[in-house]
């Protein structure tokens, strides 16, 4: 294949990765930024979103788009509910202590994974894409649905940005992130904000999963790789910085696409991990993060 089309394919693949990664990492970053909780179970919320998408899509008959759209709405809501319960039952009782919550979310990771294994089983199951359209370029074909994933992700990221920077809820969240004690003194119900943020973080992961599940499939172990990539993105972008997260997701996703296509996917992972190490050495707060006060 000539260099030009090769590059187009690499970039497209990279953008799809970035789109999903940005949504997922945004959830992780939000939870850390506001709550200072490193949510190791984030990948399992993603997995849960995909598994529920399968369950919901197969419960609906008719055109595949009906089941998919239902999954896109219902699955994140259920995952958000699970996160809400987890926050109330576990994290709140640990007083959001950073060390304790890491251990607790590791426990949550195993619980969610084993619950999925028990009730959903070890198979990988497909969800039908809402539409199948093959974009045929002169050199190769590309899935129209993958392009739609990129579009949907951009819309969702814009919506998140709007909520965070232009609405009252967003202002409350930012206030809590900036200084939770002062926020509380001003009458902001910090406890409820924490619960809400944890649920929203999980929902972002679930939405990412519903978008990806027609491309890959729902599987009980699918949460591990995206979790690692999300941590990479969040560390490079700066924990708690939304702009940094999106930029880093683009950087990691597109470079992953290009390096995997031109060289090898393993090399792409090596480079991403190396970049994380370098960022931690030379700019521990991340590209866009602010140094801890």
């Amino acid at each position: 294949m000539a260099f030009g089309p090769h590059l187009i394919l690499a970039t497209l693949e990279g953008l799809v990765t970035s789109a999903v990664l940005a949504l997922m990492a945004l959830g992780l970053s939000l939870v850390f930024g506001v709550m200072r909780v490193v949510n190791v179970a984030h990948g399992e919320f993603y997995m849960l979103g995909a598994v529920l998408a399968w369950a919901i899509a197969s419960a609906f008959g008719g055109h595949p788009s009906i089941g998919f759209l239902a999954a896109l709405v219902i699955s994140p809501l259920i995952v958000g509910g699970v996160a809400l319960v987890a926050d109330r039952l576990v994290l709140k009782r640990l007083d959001y202590n950073p060390e304790a919550t890491i251990v607790a979310t590791i426990g949550l990771l195993y619980i969610l994974q084993q619950v999925a294994l028990t009730f959903y089983g070890p198979e990988a199951r497909p969800v039908q894409a809402p539409f199948t359209y093959r974009v045929s370029l002169p050199w190769f074909g590309y899935s129209g649905y993958k392009l739609a994933v990129i579009g949907a992700s951009i819309l969702l990221l814009l919506a998140t940005w709007f909520v965070l920077s232009r609405t009252r809820i967003g202002m409350i969240m930012r206030a809590t992130q900036y200084d939770s004690e002062t926020a509380q003194a001003f009458g902001i119900p910090v406890g409820r904000v924490y619960t809400g943020v944890f649920a929203v973080g999980a929902m972002l992961a679930a939405v990412a999963a519903v978008l990806i599940v027609p491309i890959s499939q729902a599987h009980y172990l699918m949460g591990r790789d995206p979790l690692l990539l999300s941590f990479i993105v969040v560390i490079i972008g700066g924990l708690g910085s939304l702009r940094g997260t999106v930029v880093a997701a683009l950087l990691i996703g597109v470079s992953d696409g290009i390096i995997s296509v031109f060289f090898s996917p393993t090399l792409a992972k090596i480079i991403a991990t190396f970049v994380v190490a370098m960022v931690l050495v030379f700019r521990p707060q991340g590209l866009f993060g602010t140094a801890a006060r």
Partner: peptide, 28 residues
């Protein structure tokens, strides 16, 4: 879990692709 990125390595003058994959993502 994602395979498109490997396909450009397939030479254009290939007559036949001999494929054998295993794992949860074979359908993909």
């Amino acid at each position: 879990s994602s395979f498109t990125k490997y396909f450009p390595q397939i030479p254009a003058d290939t007559d036949v692709i001999y494929h054998v994959m295993v794992g949860p993502a074979v359908l993909t």
